[in-house]
Design a protein around this nucleic acid. Sequence first.
DNA 1: TATTGTTATACTCTATAACTATA
DNA 2: TATAGTTATAGAGTATAACAATA
Lengths: 147, 147
Amino acid sequence: MRFEVLERLVGYHLRRASGVFNVDFARTLGESGMRPVLFSILSVIEASPGINQGSIGRALSIQRANMVSLINELVDRGLIHRDASTDDRRALALTLTEKGHDAYRESLERIQVHEDRLLIDLSAAERATLIALLRRIEAQEPLELGP
Amino acid sequence: MRFEVLERLVGYHLRRASGVFNVDFARTLGESGMRPVLFSILSVIEASPGINQGSIGRALSIQRANMVSLINELVDRGLIHRDASTDDRRALALTLTEKGHDAYRESLERIQVHEDRLLIDLSAAERATLIALLRRIEAQEPLELGP
DNA sequence: TATTGTTATACTCTATAACTATA
DNA sequence: TATAGTTATAGAGTATAACAATA
């Protein structure tokens, strides 16, 4: 059964392919409690220790309001520290704990297995092409809403 | 600010690109109440009048339980008919109403504008490549959970 | 005035388990 | 036994509006 109209829509295929990744991610890492959003936040903190929530949100397109519970979750699990920033008393400086570093490394290893499983049919060149194409979509500004 | 680890992960880019499509879809069609899932269901019914819920769910990877409220929503809006199937008294035959045909056509026109806006930087060949690569991911079987 | 973090809230998507009626 | 549709429920992602403290 083929649905020609849907088959031609990139948005439809992005949704389906993203869904396959989500299911496989959950089955591969779900037991550890790691989720895609949490891993992306850990990854940003690992690359930029001392960064604050707002900067992470802007980097990952996560809204401020939604960052709060995500950061709380990582703090509660002992994966990150949340300390007063030295130069801005509104901001909180985020760093990985020892446990956070371990969780980050272990998750990354499992994610590589997960990616290799789903991308088994794609050559290295095709994976690079796919990422390059997706990045050009990410760079697009969505339609602005009127006031 | 670049995060090399995330940048190499296809799953990360699928999530981000899918997010851009979702935001732009909502802004382009949100006022009409049309959403990606609903449009995909309308599209399947348009291509296969008389199809039942279970078949749509299998075609689109939507679980039976979640089909119920989606179909209810389309019926309540007057976009589809839900009639007793002639050959299986458990099943319900779904067809588009006049209004459903109109909503489908109008939505498709707007979706084309939305896709063209987000894919403005991609040539026709690149769009075809992207869809072909995504379809090969969709074909992968996610990891099976143990019993 | 603008920004950081926060609370409250709502909607959507997705997942599982269990039920009924038919096949 | 298996399938079609349903109900109930829960977790997760994402959206907006408004607030206090600080820049």
